[in-house]
């Protein structure tokens, strides 16, 4: 069972990264971004297209991350321009339209054929309890933990972080105080897109990597973000790793193996119901 659990870290790291991006955008841009993995997949497919075209591995990665960030940043600009006065629900719904649009655009550009992604660190690995944990997986987990820690520090201990928190809580007041809210919003979307692009790049080599599948990493990312109550980066990372481990363990359990892809949905449902357990169900509901 330990080997089963450890084999889930490869997915868990990707889920944690997506979850961090989701929480970042929710906390600072006030939006639950359904399209974050679509932007990430866009960047990832740009990366693999460049790599297949002859560009070196790491330049391709940099290019892919830039494309994912730029795509996300562009949508952030649209969001700041059109939906700055809207509530979180309206903005989140707008991201659904973004996801559909970019999925269609991506199918036009990249097609819907799966692609073969290169492993970033080749066969480098370490062995834990008889299970080989690839350097790619260690990097994904380390990146998620590092980003989560960095964000906690920045948001809690720096002037920039305080301004950004103020912007997310009171956007109008922040703007009146001279905080460049539109610029900060775009920056949040840029960073979110860049983080979300690393997730599919790291996860794709050991799975059938078509655009739709990589875009659906957001489901597990949302589940991870929910476990962190859309507030805690640390719990989100733990949640993402936990979901990956749970899916891997489910492969060993014949009763649930065929349904393991529904685990993030069940988790979301369970957490939502648990969070509402103290509510009174009266006629208003």
């Amino acid at each position: 069972m330990i080997s089963a659990a450890l084999s889930g870290l490869s997915s868990g790291g990707a889920y944690a990264l997506v979850g961090v991006a989701v929480v970042l955008m929710y906390r600072l841009a006030g939006v639950m971004n359904i399209a974050v993995s679509v932007f990430g997949a866009f960047g990832a497919f740009s990366m693999v297209s460049a790599f297949d075209g002859g560009l070196g591995l790491w330049p391709s990665v940099v290019l892919g991350v830039c494309v994912g960030a730029a795509t996300s940043g562009l949508m952030g600009l649209v969001m700041a321009w059109l939906f700055s006065d809207s509530d979180a629900i309206t903005r989140s719904v707008a991201t659904i339209a973004m996801a559909i649009t970019f999925l269609s655009v991506a199918f036009r550009i990249f097609g819907d054929t799966p692609r073969s992604f290169p492993a970033l660190f080749g066969d480098s690995a370490l062995t834990v309890s008889g299970v080989v944990v690839k350097a790619t997986n260690v990097f994904a987990i380390g990146l998620a933990v590092l980003l989560a820690g960095l964000l906690v520090l920045v948001l809690g201990r720096t002037r920039l972080g305080v301004r950004m928190v103020a912007m997310s809580n009171r956007p109008v007041s922040a703007e009146l105080l001279g905080i460049p809210t539109r610029r900060y919003t775009v920056a949040v979307w840029l960073v979110g897109g860049a983080v979300a692009t690393m997730a599919p790049i790291l996860a794709a080599p050991t799975r059938q990597a078509d655009f739709t599948s990589l875009s659906l990493l957001v489901v597990a990312g949302l589940a991870a973000a929910l476990l962190g109550a859309f507030q805690s980066f640390g719990l989100t990372v733990v949640g993402g790793l936990g979901i990956g481990v749970l899916e891997a363990v489910a492969v060993r359990w014949d009763l649930v193996s065929s349904y393991r892809s529904t685990l993030p949905f069940l988790l979301i449902l369970g957490v939502l119901m648990w969070s509402q357990r103290g509510e009174v169900w009266d006629e208003s509901r």
């Binding site: 089963a4 889930g8 490869s10 050991t206 799975r207 059938q208 659906l216 891997a248």
Partner: peptide, 10 residues
């Protein structure tokens, strides 16, 4: 589609 193969290999 999209499943990671690592758990199956192990």
């Amino acid at each position: 589609p999209g499943d990671d193969f690592t758990p199956f290999v192990t």
